[in-house]
Simulated assay, not measured.
Amino acid sequence: MLHTNLPKNRFFRGAYLMVRRYLRHGVGIQSAALAFYLLFAVFPMLIFISALLGLLHLDVASVLADLHEILPKVAVDFIGVYLIHVEENSNVRLLLFGLVFSIFFPMRAANTLMRSVRTAYRLGPPRQAALHLLRTLIYTVLLLVTLTLTLVLMSVSNTVLQYAVAHLHLPAFAAWLWSTLRFPLAGAAAGFALLALYALTQDTRQPWKNLLPGVVASLAAWLVLSWIYAAYMENIANYSLLYGSIGTAMALLVWLYMTAVTLIMGAELNGTLISLRRETPEEF
């Protein structure tokens, strides 16, 4: 029996339940935690890459000579200073530090996501801790690959492509192809990762109708938000002038937060639809 204070219309009843779920399940707080974990994962990864380059003992002069053929002198000089710095400051302990925290923070992010999905589906604590840990490890790897791919696709904008065509001899067709396909490719990667998230979190195999609606809705919302945000950052915002170098981290953090909200709310939508099919929303 439905509560009498719920809207009679099925659509408005679902919207009411979604808002109630957002508040009761702390979606805003979980999204903020997820965004911070993902942002924290970036810096140890940069430390790991820098330490690894230093330990490889690259022939800096040879590398710079090759780069002079494709990059402007200013860019080559900057890369040269960076490579010399990491070679002179190579450290195994720094490498291990970067490696450990490059795994730790993405694992925390994956665990936060999976916990939020389990809350949306009302699954409770995992039944098998070892199996849950294995699933978290698998999804951590998938999350890292997906984030790297989507960040590259989102970051290489039309302005960067035009510069590459003009100065780096990038074929115009390749630039057009990248510009045309970057959002569909990002959407396909995110959709696969999202479907894997909802499926791996379950204790038992779920029918498609309990997974796909949230995946489609979350993916559509993420693509729209990413497109709006990318257009805003490229054409309107001048965050670097206002905030300096920290502006890049702020912009990335906002995008990660919006991404986290859409991912979690997709699971909440699935939970709401399950509730409506059972006509027992009072349990939520």
Rank of each mutant, 00 (worst) to 15 (best):
V261H: 03
R13G: 11
L46M: 12
I228N: 14
L185H: 06
Y163T: 09
T112F: 02
L94A: 12
A237N: 08
Y229S: 06
A221T: 02
L137W: 06
W222P: 00
R108F: 07
T4Q: 08
G98K: 00
V117C: 09
H25M: 07
L123P: 12
R118F: 07
L151I: 06
P207V: 06
W208Y: 07
A120V: 00
H68G: 12
P7Y: 06
E69F: 03
S62H: 10
A175L: 05
L177Q: 07
K209I: 10
I29R: 10
L223V: 09
E87R: 10
W208F: 15
M265F: 02
H167Q: 14
S275F: 09
A217R: 02
V27I: 02
G214F: 01
S179H: 15
N235H: 12
E234T: 15
G244N: 09
Y22V: 12
L39D: 04
I70K: 09
R182A: 06
G54H: 02
A51C: 09
G244Y: 01
T150G: 03
T4A: 14
N210K: 11
F43S: 06
Y139N: 05
A32Q: 08
M18F: 07
L225K: 02
S179I: 04
P72M: 10
M114S: 04
H68I: 06
E87L: 03
A109H: 00
L17Q: 01
Y239C: 15
Q30W: 03
L168S: 14
V152F: 07
E69A: 11
L71K: 07
F43Y: 11
K209A: 15
L212P: 04
A35T: 02
A51S: 14
T159A: 13
S240R: 10
D59W: 05
L273R: 02
P7V: 10
A65Y: 07
P72G: 09
S102W: 01
K8M: 10
L177F: 13
V100N: 13
W176A: 12
R278V: 14
Y257I: 01
L23I: 12
R118A: 12
L99E: 07
K8V: 14
S90I: 01
R277Y: 05
A193Y: 04
L123K: 03
Q206T: 15
L181D: 10
I47L: 13
G124A: 03
L225G: 04
G124Y: 01
L46P: 00
D203S: 08
A174S: 11
R182I: 04
S50T: 02
L170R: 02
S31L: 04
M233R: 07
D66N: 11
L17V: 05
N158F: 04
A251W: 00
W255V: 03
L151Y: 08
V254I: 05
H3V: 11
G191A: 10
L253W: 01
L225R: 00
S275Y: 01
H57G: 13
F40V: 05
G98L: 02
L200A: 09
T262F: 02
V74L: 14
A166Y: 13
L67H: 02
T204P: 08
V152L: 15
L273S: 03
Q162Y: 03
L64I: 06
P281I: 07
I228F: 13
L95D: 04
I264E: 08
L123M: 15
Q206M: 11
R277M: 15
